[in-house]
Computed example of a mutant assay.
Amino acid sequence: MGSVSEARFHYVDVPSVTDGLRHATSGTTLTAILRTSDDVRVEARYEPRRTSASSASFADAADTAIVLAHGFTGSVDRPAVRRAAAVFARHAAVVTFSFRGHGRSGGRSTVGDREVLDLAAAVAWARSLGHGRVVTVGFSMGGSVVLRHAALFRSDQEPDARTAADTDGHAAAHTDAVASVSAPARWYYRGTAPMRRLHWVVTRPVGRLVGRYGFGTRIHHEDWDPVPLSPAEAVPLIAPTPLLVVHGDRDPYFPLDHPRMLAAAGPCELWVEPGMGHAENAADEELLGRIGDWLVRA
């Protein structure tokens, strides 16, 4: 699996109907096929904000779009993703998408490496719709992706060698705030039974067949080369962009040393949620509402 340094970022290709915030005010839901900088087609959906008592008083709410990055084996149509999007839409417009190798997107999953390009395309699409403020939230694999994306696509500096991005595309793809939920802090973790099963799915030919036909996820067969920046290494590069780290104290995949390692790596706000399990499937409506509120206010 190649790292993000191998690709150049450019503006995404979107349907000609995407002509700004007219869609947010008219209440229209949009679908699009985005093209990443390495020419992968990514399915995406835009939903306007549903004005509510909790969000109507914030001046930034109408200008904000929340881009949601799902976990491994998820997709734009999975019930947990749709539930999270519905809660976030009470606070701001929402863009959901399927990572490469998931849902109706093209390509094959690199399990968090080149997925930063998928997220960059979705963020740039949200800006092309007229939103001046775009924020990101990711769950599990998506949580690691939003951290690396925030570190690699910065608005306050020129692109470095790790992104090799052109200046205009780089600026369009940056995030204004980031929330990472149930994310690992380091790669190759096998300390829990669920993670050992996941590594079997990803690294073994039979496991990848299970991923394809059992979970609808097409996984790349090549190892990472080079190994991408880890989530913990990404955190200190994110500031001054506001960062929220959320983790359940009953997460069966990643124990609490992962969020604590992320929090120790750089400036962030850490929420350890009592009784919560893993990722979007375990995030209840109350927690999702708090995350949405934080993203709008950050």
Rank of each mutant, 00 (worst) to 15 (best):
His247Arg: 06
Glu273Lys: 13
Leu147Ala: 10
Pro252Ala: 08
Leu129Ile: 12
His10Trp: 12
Glu285Lys: 13
Arg41Asn: 13
Val4Ala: 13
Ala179Lys: 06
Gly216Leu: 08
Gly130Phe: 06
Thr136Val: 15
Gly211Val: 02
Arg197Gln: 13
Arg83Asp: 12
Ala234Leu: 07
Thr110Trp: 01
His174Arg: 15
Ala126Cys: 07
Ala161Thr: 05
Gly216Asn: 05
Thr175Val: 14
Val17Met: 13
Val4Cys: 11
Ala44Val: 10
Ala279Lys: 03
Thr175Glu: 00
Val135Tyr: 00
Thr136Gly: 01
Val14Glu: 10
Thr73Gly: 02
Pro228Ala: 03
Ala80Glu: 15
Ala32Cys: 07
Thr36Tyr: 05
Phe88Trp: 12
Arg196Val: 06
Asp160Pro: 02
His149Arg: 11
Gly27Pro: 03
Leu117Trp: 09
His174Val: 14
Gly103His: 10
Ala56Asn: 01
Val76Ile: 15
Ala62Lys: 06
Val94Ala: 01
Ser140Gly: 11
Arg108Glu: 06
Pro205Lys: 03
Val146Met: 01
Asp293Asn: 14
Val14Cys: 04
Ser5Tyr: 00
His278Asp: 12
Val123Gly: 03
Ser180Val: 04
Glu269Met: 09
Asp284Leu: 11
Asp168Asn: 09
His258Cys: 07
Glu43Met: 08
Thr217Glu: 01
Thr36His: 01
Leu262Asp: 01
Arg260Gly: 04
Gly191Asp: 06
Val202Phe: 07
Pro259Ile: 12
Arg190Val: 09
Ser75Val: 10
Val206His: 06
Ala124Gly: 10
Ala92Glu: 00
Ser26Thr: 14
Ser182Cys: 11
Met276Lys: 14
His221Gly: 04
Ala239Asn: 05
Pro228Lys: 04
Pro274Cys: 09
Ala61Gly: 05
Arg41Glu: 15
